[in-house]
Design a binder for these strands. Structure first.
Lengths: 131, 131
DNA sequence: ATAGATGCAAAGAGTTTGCATAGGT
DNA sequence: ACCTATGCAAACTCTTTGCATCTAT
């Protein structure tokens, strides 16, 4: 029942800083690459272990995307959804939601939450490649 | 450019029949288990190879769910979304959609498609376990 | 008879875990 | 000094691929 005391290692701090400096959902690989700028030699296992710990302490949220990838983003944001760019693959946050979204299910089904993901081309990719 | 002639093997027929008899998205493992009732000894590699072929010939659609699993369902259905039961993990189809769903993205983003997944407890699980 | 399809096992890709050691406190 | 966190490598899970054999045509 008692929680272990967590230590502030260079690795964990670097990972935290990555999220402060990048306000969009990130993949474990991206996180590793960004954190390695500060702590070279950091291993991928350390990233996974810290992500797990940070999710448990509710500092991060795991964003499960269709297709298998799990991304992580800072916790505590208002309810929102995501947009993934078909061109650069990056994921952006979308503000807001839609009313009645839970009414799509039949009455006998109890709906507790939902995920909505839009796909297309982000502003940056549209500007740079005339898609 | 020319396509290979496809053979009607017992295995492929069994897989097709599984989809005729189960009108919801199925995982490769479920498909294997169901198809093995007809063709015992069928291997998982055969399932994957046939799913790939059936998607290419547009008989099936791959349904990418958050969390990694890829399910397959019969192609040709009207636009729809999915519900996954937190209890039995099964996925059901939801009819209909919502207007304005693409307007959640900023104007500079071009949206081409979207996925919506509701989560909760299905009618059957509610009835059987008082959740 | 021919060439696509199958089953098995090995190979990949992504994630998790065991273990000896480094390093916060 | 203690005990958590790290890095490495092995283990796992899911999917794909190579290959010898089978089988639909």
């Amino acid at each position: 029942m008692s929680e272990k005391v967590q230590r502030n290692t260079r690795q964990r701090s670097a990972i935290r800083r990555v999220f402060e400096q990048n306000d969009r959902p990130l993949s474990p690989q991206e996180i590793l690459a960004l954190a390695q700028r500060e702590v070279m030699g950091m291993g991928i296992a350390t990233v996974y272990r810290n992500l797990k710990a940070l999710v448990e302490e509710q500092s991060l949220i795991a964003v499960q995307l269709p297709g298998g990838s799990v991304l992580y983003e800072a916790a505590g944001k208002a309810h929102h959804h995501h947009f993934q760019c078909d061109h650069c693959q990056r994921v952006f946050e979308l503000e807001g939601c839609l009313p009645d979204i839970h009414k799509l299910a039949k009455p006998k089904f109890r709906v507790y939450r939902h995920e909505l993901i839009l796909y297309g081309i982000c502003a940056e990719c549209r500007a740079s490649s005339r898609n």
